[in-house]
Amino acid sequence: MKVQVDQSKCQGHNRCYAIAPELFDVDDMGNAFAIGDGVVEPHLAEKARLAVANCPEYAISIVE
């Protein structure tokens, strides 16, 4: 399981970074990106789903 942030959609709401800082970081502009290669350890799967479900711009997706 991996998370991806679509940079063309992210507007820097920061919800993912607040919910799952283990999975997401933000750049100097405040836009989010997946940490490393985006791989989600099993114990963080629920946080990954919440990050997807809370993004106002529908910018985050999960790739199984």
Partner: peptide
């Protein structure tokens, strides 16, 4: 509420610039 895709800070390119400060 855990699933809360709210638009309090707007949507699209004009997302509130100060949202992190406001929050």
């Amino acid at each position: 509420r855990e699933v809360n895709r709210h638009a309090a800070f707007g949507l699209g390119i004009h997302r509130c610039l100060g949202s992190n400060l406001a929050r």
